[in-house]
């Protein structure tokens, strides 16, 4: 299950960035014609991927924390008392879990940005600026 979520997330990052590279082909060509190096173009798209990842991770952590907190205090998801000893789904928030998962998702974003960023960096300026 978790694997599937990660896969979907990684693919959506890759496809968003690839789309962005395709939309910006001409601009990338213009920047290169003005002397931007492949490295600097790669950096732009790596940053884009990482910033997206940071925003996603941060909002994920906040929403996760809020949901757990609500469950802890208001017991929204209850369990049938005659089957289980406890009356509500228990939550146990560990700082370490938050850290590991955040680090993991940032790493995934980084890896997912590599392909589109390299694609952008390797664009040839003459191809990118053909008039047609």
């Amino acid at each position: 299950m978790l694997c599937l979520i990660i896969l979907v997330a990684a693919f959506s990052i890759i496809s968003t960035l690839v789309m962005m590279v395709m939309e910006k082909t001409r601009e990338i060509g213009i920047l290169k014609a003005m002397g931007a190096t492949s490295k600097s173009i790669r950096k732009i798209f790596m940053w884009q991927g990482l910033v997206t990842g940071l925003l996603g991770t941060a909002s994920g952590c906040i929403i996760g924390y809020l949901l757990c907190w609500v469950q802890q205090n208001f017991k929204l998801i209850s369990l049938p008392a005659d089957i289980y000893i406890i009356s509500a789904v228990p939550v146990n928030m560990r700082v370490w879990d938050f850290i590991c998962i955040s680090a993991g998702s940032l790493a995934i974003c980084f890896l997912a940005s590599l392909y589109p960023a390299n694609k952008a960096a390797s664009l040839q300026p003459v191809e990118a600026i053909r008039y047609e």
């Binding site: 213009i30 014609a33 003005m34 002397g35 931007a36 490295k39 600026i129």
Partner: peptide, 24 residues
């Protein structure tokens, strides 16, 4: 190399194309 070409292009060459190709 490609990077050296990019640097040289940046410092010595300017391009004007048929369409302006300004960044929108």
């Amino acid at each position: 190399s490609d990077d050296q070409l990019a640097k040289l292009r940046n410092s010595t060459v300017g391009f004007v194309f048929q369409f302006h190709y300004l960044l929108p």
